[in-house]
Design a protein around this nucleic acid. Structure first.
Lengths: 133, 133, 133, 133
DNA sequence: GTGGTCTAGACCACG
DNA sequence: GTGGTCTAGACCACT
């Protein structure tokens, strides 16, 4: 089963960023577990319809972040030594639930996705401001 | 009173995007109301410590979006004819409340800001997928 | 004055690694100081006779390492916030002196550069082994 | 007694290079003497936890370099006819001593292993430049 | 004119 | 067959 990755070309966000973020999310969700073998660079490139250089960069970046292990001639694996545990399914479910409710509310108020995202970021930073003072 | 704008240079998101989004949010929140006079391009540029070209672009973009009106020799105003009403303070309060709770939850689970943002975007698009089917 | 960079193509070590290492060394030596403006991506590429993508990668890697600050449309600078001071000229001189003596000795014994390098790495790791136990 | 070989996977340097360099060093140090029998390809592969193809390549390379002799059905031996004498224990001791002192100094200055290696290489080449002029 | 992304394709290094 | 490097060149985003 191929990974559930979807990219949007020409939405402004670089493809490699999109893929990286989605892979991070999959690891966070426990869909990708430590030791798992990822698709070949070329495979994923074909699957997503992008150049293999782009996937190359994705894998490399995630390796530098300590999330993947690249073995030349062998393949690419989810790092065994991720210092962070994936979220427990129950917690994840609760989180997604809240997110969905929030989205529903925002949409009922006529907000766009980016507006909600901006609001979220603003509030997040506000919190961290307080925390760091 | 200066506008409550905060930008982060070198966080990857273009400055002009940050300013645009935040101005949109302020209008949405009713902090900026139709007819309000905005700071001069130069004033705002100095205040934020950015190139005035950048603010120029912000104002231009928002004018094209119909949100601002530029009157040469007079100043820049929030458009009187915004087709969309700002959110009612009560609704906004409820929304921000939910956002804050969500952030709290996400932080307690060890998520980063960008991860939560990514999750939000994923779920938002998932919804729209359903809606469009 | 151009930066004193020299690369050897086809010596096995990737060009981007060579350039990165040499730039790091220049910062260490204080030849490149915080705030200094580096050559344009394209300039350096031409100067070294490589593709600009390669230099692009060098700058990007060093940015991720916190050593450079890239400003689109402006240029590339040595980071002001390097947490590490360049070596004092006096110390550097002493170090280079020792290095030169060591090289002389190694050469008199008929060692090759890579053999000395290997010996150095072996001993270095031996030390860290002890230290970490 | 097994050979004192240590490899680090995923440190960027190919495994076969690490093994080759360390074997060369052992011969240089006189740990491996002409006529000595080396471990079987499979043995060494198992011991180091690498693919036997890798060890195969190591032995092949070192044979081509004239350092090893492969006798089918018998085993692999250190060549009797190495044109270069191992370093005398006394000289080696002196060299290692200097290396250790250098490492100590470099570490006290906060250098990393690779930085010192880079410095060493730079100086080495500088010398050869002079010599060749 | 800055840096940034992406492509198509060649060639290399490793197993 | 893996991943890795590099090129030439196009096009984009930002100042």
């Amino acid at each position: 089963m191929p990974l559930p990755l979807q990219i949007q070309k020409d939405n402004g966000i670089p493809v490699y960023v999109q893929v990286e973020q989605q892979l991070r999310l999959l690891m966070l969700q426990g869909v990708l577990l430590p030791g798992d073998l990822l698709p070949t660079v070329r495979e994923l490139a074909v699957e997503l319809g992008v150049n293999s250089n782009t996937i190359n960069r994705v894998y490399r970046d995630l390796q530098q972040a300590g999330l993947l292990v690249l073995q030349r001639g062998v393949g690419t694996f989810v790092s065994e030594a991720i210092d962070r545990q994936p979220i427990r399914p129950k917690d994840l479910k609760g989180l997604v639930n809240k997110v969905d409710h929030l989205i529903e509310l925002a949409q009922s108020l006529g907000l766009t996705s980016s507006e909600l995202g901006q609001l979220l970021e603003t509030r997040w930073n506000k919190d961290s401001d307080h925390a760091s003072r």
